[in-house]
């Protein structure tokens, strides 16, 4: 045994106040360390000790959390929130690898062509798609159970949105670092990404979790196509100019406000019906 549970942690453990991941470490250690168990018995009053043993019993029954969950808890995320995030389809490794692959190919294409527009056009769509697919009947197999659960639908949506948005922005940010020659222009995807994601979410209570982001994504591509037609060669497309960025920031702010105002709608009815097609 290379270490033992400290007096402070033992006292907190006996009082049921030790939080993960220290709690998990203490649980694992106490099962194999008789001296620490004896110290725990001296530290705690009998009632608290019984509760601690019961807790230990329950912990031992619980399967080991996944790598992602353990990482999230170590980053300070509450264990129940980490479990909610672990159930987010688009945070699975296969999805993240697909996004990374897409970004790598895009960066390579940008470097070959010597023009960043392909990346700037694509990058805002990735967080939009990721957030759209993280909540709703299309990809969340437990959506119907989540809808009737007392946990506020908007809260679940926001937990997943923040996580998916963070993952998406980190991926995009890494791709941006691979395009150092374009200066600030290479981060001009950020505000459009927030605007598209916010608008897609705000519209999803009315149009459903598939149609809303699809329309928003389609609108973005249409905007770029129109901009391309009206812009001379080697000029920056309108959404990535200073005025375009200001407009994107405005849209993002308005969308966030509308989303917040309509938060109760996420509890009132399902987004666009269920997987079996019934009940819209």
């Amino acid at each position: 045994m290379t270490w033992h549970v400290s007096e402070d942690d033992l006292r907190l453990y006996a009082q049921g106040e030790l939080a993960p991941p220290l709690l998990w470490s203490a649980d694992a250690h106490l099962t194999g360390c008789a001296p620490c168990r004896a110290r725990l018995a001296e530290t705690a009053d009998p009632v608290a000790l019984d509760a601690a043993w019961e807790r230990l019993d329950a912990e031992l029954d619980a399967p080991r959390p996944s790598t992602v969950e353990r990482l999230l808890v170590r980053l300070g995320v509450a264990d129940h929130t980490a479990r909610l995030l672990a159930a987010t389809p688009v945070l699975r490794r296969s999805w993240l690898l697909s996004v990374l692959f897409l970004l790598v190919m895009t960066v390579l294409a940008v470097r070959m062509v010597g023009q960043p527009m392909l990346f700037l056009a694509l990058a805002p769509l990735l967080p939009l798609a990721g957030v759209a697919l993280s909540y709703g009947p299309s990809l969340d197999p437990t959506y119907e159970m989540a809808v009737v659960a007392p946990l506020h639908g908007f809260r679940l949506l926001m937990i997943r949105t923040v996580a998916v948005l963070t993952a998406g922005l980190v991926c995009n940010g890494a791709a941006t670092l691979a395009l150092p020659g374009y200066g600030l222009l290479a981060v001009a995807w950020l505000l459009p990404a927030l605007a598209l994601t916010g608008t897609g979410l705000a519209l999803s209570t009315r149009l459903g979790s598939v149609l809303a982001p699809s329309l928003v994504g389609g609108g973005w591509l249409a905007l770029l196509a129109v901009g391309e037609l009206q812009t001379r060669t080697h000029e920056t497309l309108a959404p990535f100019t200073a005025a375009g960025q200001a407009a994107a920031a405005g849209v993002a702010a308005v969308a966030a406000l509308l989303l917040y105002q309509g938060r109760d709608r996420f509890d009132a009815r399902p987004l666009g019906g269920f997987r079996d097609g019934g009940a819209v």
Partner: peptide, 12 residues
């Protein structure tokens, strides 16, 4: 996971 959706956040 369902227990968390049912607001049972206290781990023990």
């Amino acid at each position: 996971y369902v227990a968390i959706l049912k607001e049972l956040t206290d781990r023990t």
